[in-house]
Design a binder for these strands. Sequence first.
DNA 1: TGTCGCAGCGCG
DNA 2: AAAGCGCGCTGCGACA
Length: 563
Amino acid sequence: MAPALLLRSFDDGGVALEPGRRFTLATFLAFVRDHELSHRGQDAARWVWDDTASFYPKLLAADVRVQRCHDLRLCHAILRNSALTGASLLASTDRGFWDAAPEQQPTARHRGTALFDLEAEQAPESDSEPEFRRQLAAVNSSAEPRRIRLLLAAESAGALIAAEMRFAGLPWNTAAHEQLLTRELGARVPSGVRPERLEQLAATIRVLLDDRTLNPDSQQDLLKALQNAGLPITSTQQWHLKEVEHPVIAPLLQYRKLSRLLSANGWSWLDAWIVDGRFHAEYLPGGVVTGRWAARGGGALQLPKQVRAAVIADPGWTFVVADAAQLEPRILAALSGDLAMAQAGHETDLYAGIVASGVVETRAHAKVAMLGAMYGATTGESGRLLPRLARAYPRALGLTEAAARTGERGDVVTTRLGRSSPRPPDAWLAAQAQAYAASASHVDERRARSQARDWGRFTRNFVVQGSAAEWALCWMAEIRTQLWKLEGSASVAGRGPGLFAAAPHLVFFLHDEVIVHTPLALAEQVAALVARAATAAGKLLFGDFPVDFPLTVATVENYADAK
DNA sequence: TGTCGCAGCGCG
DNA sequence: AAAGCGCGCTGCGACA
């Protein structure tokens, strides 16, 4: 049965311009294709639909791309929480269909909706058109409509990009990966069996710990065996192990490393995730509270450096790998309007700039101190360096401190474009209330204070991490737009059928880093547009504030060769 | 047999 | 040198 779709046009205020037209999926696809081809670069529609992740893949499979969309599900989540739209009807309405996590939503909605699904009677809660109006009303009544509007556009663009990257896939050379596995682990063995190299290391460990039955995969066994051997150890974490001297440490760490390689990115991972030389990772835009993306399946955002050598461009193609240098401190400088910190990063490595300003002695110190400021370190080297940073950059450090205090009170903080932190959970509020009760014990007070500080560290980091995520979305959206233009202006040598087979396209995103897979001939232009996009993203978020967003850009055929 | 919390470790 | 944010995945081991 072909899904029945209703498409209506609206003006910017959400007023319907016409009664609407009915489509089958096939006729809708043809309509969208025609529209996008005839409106390249200007006056293109912003397609409003329930859920990009469930609908856009149908378009991509039919070789149809769209320039812009409005993802009702993702935008609802932002508007529901944002302090900038807290007074809206949307925010005060009971939680419902649009608040459900995607996997919990009824399957009926996955039938596909364009603007509005005529099968709505099968999913009565899915009221796309009224929801769209509620969202527009929330934006228009906001204290900062420009920021919220940009955030919704960026989030929606991210959803398009996530679907496109999954569709295109990251080039993955299975042979190179297998070669790497065989070199490190030995020949392939059935799952459940230790490969040769791991078995050798296990035997060595057993001898050195004088325990013939030891299973090195069991933390409990291992900890006991290490203690029996006289090692003063309470945990088997890497850094903890590295602190003690014993002949077993080296082979044990090697065992851990290889065991991890086998279980996380071994042969079964290859079998499960690599299809026709591509890793089709499923990205989840908005999957992290701060607005960062998450990923599901295959560990797309945790690809170990160890296996990146298997990410190899197609013949005649190459990768442009770009990452934003010291993104979060630069975001902090701009957020807080700290000219001195922004200046420290002007045309140079920001940490080097901090050293050059005489604030600390080494780059490593500058980095650990900055991380401490953004994460809320109190002890160790980072804690010791913080006062010097605070004297040099009072505005930046003032912002992180204020964000921490806000969280400690149980209040909400908000990113540059308007994503707000969640309220603390009920158990947290109860613990704070308990600490003020007449019956409160010292234990109650200590626990409440500790939890308050925990939440303060979360909100402290939220504003920076969340605003950096917004910058990254704007960066990537601009890259996508410019790649599309480049494709239109350049004659590109094709390599088989498919939407992205002939043109440069995004294939990977990792918080502050992107990879574009491009024909060799266009690599230089791609590298240039990626850098321009970083500057454009900075302007979108921070206007004329003088902060740089420099990139490290590498054009490489193998991801392992980047930086 | 399946579920779940935890430890450990990969990424930013 | 190793504590301070955000994630996902795996294997172990406890429990039903």
